[in-house]
């Protein structure tokens, strides 16, 4: 019966539903993991009280559900003198690209059935723009923050928006240049080609500098500590000070969705995607390998957040322009020279 249902159209619908649901579930799980992970690092217990039907506690896994419900039923007040249109669409602008980016990431091995090739990524890989698509959308996300901060009619929010825009400019450059190295080594912008090129040797080994630049930029890109200037809850309280209810939670979900996409991208570009010895011999095994790697990178986000203090805004700029950019250029030159003369 399943065999009969397997045709490119149904498979597409299946992929879209599964990936969307999986990413959103992972967002909820990530908030849970963040709080439990923080508790683990800080020698506390963390949320463990929320119980399903008043009985089943399962380590507080119901917490994201309860948080979501609470935020959903909060009153949504429109603060005085905000720009109504921009104030309302800002969280949407932040949220939609965050959930769209994952579409390009291949999360498993392609397989052939009945003479048709099936790819495990929502976007067909032969659209040929994989990497570009992701960067274009990731760049969109910051507009949500800038517009939200601007429309809030709050000085602290404007400071947050200002920081976010400056931060994105100084980091996306280094990040993109680091990725150019990967693109050169694979000879394609297609993410599935990039993964294929890493068979046997993951990019993190030959392009170690690029991987580090990308990893650090990821934190800046997703507004996570040590680079959470747009939020900076102890300094400027954040770009979303005036937001509440679901509008606030959309910003919140977008942050976690961005983290998941960034982890997925790091796995794809540097950790060999779904490649893993033995596991990637089957399709399901390759998906499992991808998910395990993704969860590991996601854990790194949480791990770093609860270990390091925050940078200062100008120090981040200095790091971005004076350290990260030259490093990514060095990486690019090394890779380019290798492929021009050595490879």
């Amino acid at each position: 019966m399943m065999e009969g249902l397997l045709n490119p159209q149904t498979f597409m619908v299946f992929k879209v539903v599964v990936v969307f649901v999986a990413v959103l579930t992972l967002v909820a799980l990530a908030t849970w993991a963040e709080r439990r992970g923080a508790a683990f690092i800080q020698d506390r217990v963390g949320p463990n009280r929320v119980a399903l039907f008043g009985k089943i506690r399962i380590f507080g896994l119901g917490q994201p559900l309860a948080d979501g419900l609470k935020l959903f039923f909060k009153e949504d007040v429109l603060p005085l003198n905000v720009d109504r249109v921009l104030y309302t669409i800002a969280p949407v602008i932040s949220f939609i690209p965050a959930t769209m980016t994952f579409a390009a990431i291949p999360f498993g091995k392609p397989f052939v059935k009945n003479g048709i090739q099936y790819f495990l990524s929502i976007l067909p890989p032969d659209t040929n723009i994989g990497v570009l698509y992701i960067f274009a959308l990731a760049g969109m996300g910051v507009y949500g923050i800038i517009i939200g901060g601007w429309a809030s009619n709050n000085k602290w929010s404007i400071l947050g928006a200002m920081r976010a825009s400056a931060q994105v400019i100084s980091y996306e450059l280094a990040m993109t240049l680091a990725v150019v190295g990967v693109v050169i080594s694979a000879g394609s912008l297609r993410l599935d080609r990039i993964i294929e090129a890493q068979n046997g040797l993951w990019n993190i080994v030959p392009q170690f500098i690029g991987a580090i630049v990308f990893f650090v930029s990821m934190f800046a890109e997703t507004n996570r500590l040590p680079f959470d200037f747009a939020e900076g809850e102890s300094e400027i309280i954040g770009y979303h000070t005036e937001y509440m209810s679901m509008k606030f939670s959309m910003f919140f979900l977008a942050e976690y969705a961005n983290m998941i996409t960034a982890s997925g991208l790091f796995v794809t570009l540097y950790l060999g995607g779904w490649h893993f010895p033995i596991l990637d011999s089957t399709v399901i095994g390759s998906v499992v390998a991808f998910v395990i790697k993704l969860l590991f990178v996601l854990w790194c986000f949480i791990w770093v957040r609860w270990t390091l203090p925050r940078f200062r805004y100008d120090q981040l700029m200095r790091l971005g322009w004076k350290v990260m950019l030259p490093l990514s250029l060095i990486n690019l030159v090394i890779v380019a020279l290798f492929y021009a003369y050595g490879g």
Binding site: I41, Q42, L225, D228, S234, L308, P309, R310
Partner: peptide, 15 residues
């Protein structure tokens, strides 16, 4: 430390 963003250091001591 919390104000500068190092939350864990704060809780290590607060115990």
């Amino acid at each position: 430390a919390v104000d500068i963003g190092a939350f864990s250091a704060f809780l290590y001591l607060f115990r």
